[in-house]
Nucleic acid binder design. Structure first.
Lengths: 189, 189
DNA sequence: CGTGCCGTTGAGCGTTGTCAACCAGTGTGG
DNA sequence: CCACACTGGTTGACAACGCTCAACGGCACG
């Protein structure tokens, strides 16, 4: 489990490139897979200095054997991961560049805020433009131009590993963001 | 759980369109979510006549409480779903149209074969070109042209709700397909 | 003071989308 | 039995979004 910093889930491509599949921020489980799917089908790397907490394979199995509430919580976390992945698929498959980037920043801002990592309207966002490109299925050059446009329109600014969202409500409306997929009220029912 | 036929997981878009997120074929669990995430963040629909088996919410909870091996199996199935989603993300984000379509047919062929639903080199594939477009983040027109190209190159043919893969090995190499993400040997460790 | 990474900008090109027309197959009602 | 409508597939022309290549600027680091 990530305790501090950002990590990244990615796949390497035939042509030497890489596709970024998810970002892990504090509070996220990063490797529930290993306990069950023994072959990993992707890689994980730190993006900044990170602290992580280990949960051993045996502990995982014990949880399933002895603590059904915890097992359900783990299952729940995985289902949320899946929901996020589905939304990324929509974002990348259907939205054009400007909305795509805006949507991504909406998500990361709300997720950061949910774990208390925002300061007013800005948050820790350590990605380079190349990394954003690998994430959003765009070229680095186009990411650059798109960020410029979003800045010019007054939506957001990225500087020195921090992103500032000038008006979250505006950005949510602009990008067509629907926060429900994040299932941010944990275990709610 | 789908027993017979194809179903589809999708999200409706602001502009009236829809994004297709996954296909469910016989053997797939379609709604483990409902038992835990009470709000559904997407929709499911049948694409052909379908038979389904119901597992009640209570049964799901009982499984977690009383049968850790079954709970693990459910968890495992969800992790595989997630792996497929990740690969779709790569496919749509990084590959150009022809490879994208080829990759998709590879996957559906191998998944169908794994549940014994292929006949030699062809299998049930009920999607229209519009549905393929909503799946792969391309326009219907471009799907049409791409299928034409793939046919001309001798890779695959689609006709009357069946797809024929002329040489799976060729198609796998062409599309850069790596089957490991499907985790097709169930429960292996 | 160089070296290297990251960000920025311009020019030209290519893949893919849009619009529009048309064809083939199928089911329906007169 | 034959219009008719409807759905799905096919094709062409043109526009646009995003990519590639290339050059350059700022900044940190050794």
């Amino acid at each position: 489990m990530i305790v501090d910093g950002w990590a990244v889930r990615y796949k390497s491509l035939r042509d030497g490139g890489r596709a970024i599949i998810a970002f892990l921020i504090p509070g996220d489980l990063c490797d529930a897979h290993v306990a069950l799917l023994d072959r990993m089908d992707h890689s994980i790397a730190a993006l900044s200095d990170c602290s992580v907490a280990y949960i051993s394979r045996d502990t995982m199995r014990q949880i399933f054997a002895e603590n059904s509430r915890l097992a359900q919580a783990l299952f729940w976390a995985t289902l949320v991961d899946e929901a996020v992945l589905r939304e990324w698929l929509v974002n990348i498959g259907q939205r054009e560049a400007e909305l795509r980037v805006a949507h991504f920043f909406c998500e990361m801002f709300l997720r950061s805020r949910a774990v208390g990592l925002t300061e007013d309207d800005n948050f820790f966002m350590p990605l380079t433009q190349v990394e954003l490109a690998d994430t959003l299925g765009l070229s680095a050059v186009h990411i650059n131009r798109t960020l410029k446009d979003l800045r010019k329109r007054g939506f957001l600014t990225v500087k020195a590993r921090r992103a500032t969202i000038h008006d979250v409500e505006d950005l949510i409306i602009f990008s067509g963001f629907t926060p429900n997929y994040l299932h941010l009220n944990p275990g709610a029912q």
